[in-house]
Write a protein that binds this DNA or RNA. Structure first.
Length: 491
RNA sequence: GGUCUCUUGGCCGAGUGGCUAGGCAGUGGUCUGCAAAACCAUGUACGGCGGUUCGAAUCCGCCAGAGACCUCCA
């Protein structure tokens, strides 16, 4: 600490010193999921990234209001054809459920998965369907300001008009002429003046079930609108940080900027932050590519490309071991490496509690702490921070081994530092290992064999001792001889 | 096609004009009846070709390869 926190602002494409609009208070908005199917590996990235940001800003003494929405209406698929079906409505039709049952079901799953990943709940989690009035108000004000037009019961944002006074495309770095020449003109889009105009309000077709009355038509809000509305409602006309996945930069966030500017005359967001994607075998995970892995599948190992189950903390650690603006490539090898690395770190956390103190210290705590905080201050460089934590692990183990010494004061400081860093900021936690003791018959039987093996060992009957160990292993039970006795675990 | 990004050792993944990233794997060692685990130590690198520079993996140019966005995606 001591250094200012610097974050990369997508808008300026530069690292900038982070100064909140109000000293000591931070407004943070992150695009949440559209709850129409199980949460997947891709959802883990932004939620963990911004959880880290939330935790670190809080650790630095800020009062953070973190708003993360739930999209439960208005997110269409296949919109290019002009006949897009609402994702939630479609799922409801396929599963024969009420749309709000679909929403509830997958929102519950999302919350459970986030909890498993130790992602803290946001301060406010607003839902698009609960803010229809406010969305209509914003459509109205954009219309009044002349940046939108009504067409056949729907309202569209007039991108060309907006672009004359403000620059449309400043976030994604594209200009409207490029978009013009590169967007397909399609039949059936005659409602719009230009193909790149986007819907603020859509008139519902007769079979569309999720609909609300409005002055324009019975319909529903456009997808981009909810974030503009809910962010400013809870964080104010201007707020500090807006986050999300890089794939949302265009068009979603670009449209948000246009909407805010068109309705209130000024931009809402000071810093835009975007996390990069997770790839699988070098390719983006996408439904269309068939390489989708849900979080549940990861945690249970039930997907054909998974060699084993990976715990939520392994996933979290894996994601934190890469910088949030880099892509990370998923593979069994990489996850297994993270799993082992995490074990090493966590076992050092235990060692920390068993250290004995000396009169003096031979270790340099100050430098370790400074390096870790400097890494986080530099655009949340968690991989560097973790690298330094591993240097600290070496230090902790050396103290245990007696080759380094630590004073009582320093030990307290070291413990407090590791607790803050590992548990509070990185958000890692001890995982409960599947308790073999659940099954009393099994543990009784294993204890019996262990005692037989102890006798064999005492008699130096190595053949019998090894046979018990090997046969148990073949059954999936591993024995380890330690100083304190024999430990066993189910593999 | 347009816009942009990336290419680091066996794998993952930081960094960046001169100073060991780190993890996993490998190798050597300590411990152990043997193993396993744990701990300690340790080698290999910056896509190719030019250029700038005292010095480039790091800056510039070209070439090759990969990816992202432009359409739903986190």
């Amino acid at each position: 600490m001591g250094n200012p926190l610097v974050i990369y602002n997508t808008l300026t494409r530069k690292k900038e010193v982070f100064n909140p609009l109000v000293e000591g208070k931070v407004g943070l908005y992150v695009c949440g999921p559209t709850v129409y199917s199980d949460s997947h590996l891709g959802h883990a990235r932004p939620n963990i990234t911004f959880d880290l940001l939330f935790r670190y800003l809080t650790f630095l003494g800020n009062k953070v209001r973190y708003v993360r929405n739930i999209t439960d209406v208005g997110h269409l698929e296949d919109e290019v054809e002009g006949v897009g079906e609402d994702r939630i409505a479609k799922k409801a039709r396929l599963e024969q459920l009420e749309p709000m049952e679909v929403v509830q079901k997958y929102m519950n799953t999302f919350h459970r998965n986030m909890d498993e990943l130790n992602v803290l709940p946001p301060s406010i989690e607003p839902r698009a369907s609960g803010h229809i009035i406010e969305q209509q108000e914003m459509v109205d004000s954009i219309l009044k300001n002349g940046y939108a037009y009504e067409s056949n019961g729907s309202v569209y944002f007039d991108v060309e008009k907006y672009n004359q006074e403000h620059k449309y495309g400043k976030l994604s770095g594209r200009n409207i002429d490029d978009i013009k020449t590169n967007t397909r003109e399609l039949d059936g889009q005659s409602e719009k003046k230009n193909s790149f105009d986007f819907a603020l309000w859509k008139k519902a077709s007769p079979e569309h079930i999720m609909r609300w009355p409005s002055q324009w038509s019975d319909g529903f809000p456009g997808w981009h609108l909810e974030c503009s509305v809910m962010s400013t409602k809870y964080l104010g006309e201007q707020f500090d940080i807006h986050g999300g996945g890089m794939d949302l930069i265009f068009p979603h966030h670009e449209c948000e900027i246009a909407q805010s500017t068109a309705s209130q005359g000024k931009e809402a967001v000071k810093y835009w932050m975007h996390n990069n994607m997770i790839t699988i075998n070098g390719q983006k995970m996408a439904r269309s590519l068939g390489n989708f892995i849900t979080l549940l599948e990861l945690f249970t190992g039930s997907h054909e490309i998974l060699e084993q189950a990976y715990s939520p903390m392994t996933i979290r650690f894996f994601i934190l071991q890469a910088h949030y603006r880099s892509t990370i490539d998923f593979s069994n090898e990489a996850l297994q490496a993270s799993e082992k690395g995490l074990e090493r770190l966590m076992s050092a956390m235990k060692t920390l509690e068993e250290l004995t103190v000396s009169g003096t210290s031979s270790v340099d705590l100050k430098s370790l702490k400074e390096k870790c905080f400097a890494a986080l201050d530099d655009d949340l460089n968690s991989p560097i921070a973790i690298a330094h934590l591993f240097d600290g692990v070496k230090m902790i183990n050396s103290i245990k081994a007696g080759t380094e010494k630590i004073s009582a004061n320093d030990l307290e400081e070291l413990k407090s530092f590791y607790n803050s860093m590992v548990f509070d900021i990185l958000g890692l936690k001890e995982e409960e290992i599947a308790d073999s003791g659940d099954n009393e018959v099994l543990s009784g039987a294993v204890e019996l064999l262990i005692n037989l093996r102890k006798e064999a060992k005492a008699n130096k009957d190595w053949a019998t001792a090894d046979k018990i160990r090997d046969d148990l292993k073949a059954l999936g039970i591993e024995l380890k001889d330690t100083k304190d006795g024999i430990e066993w675990s189910v593999i």
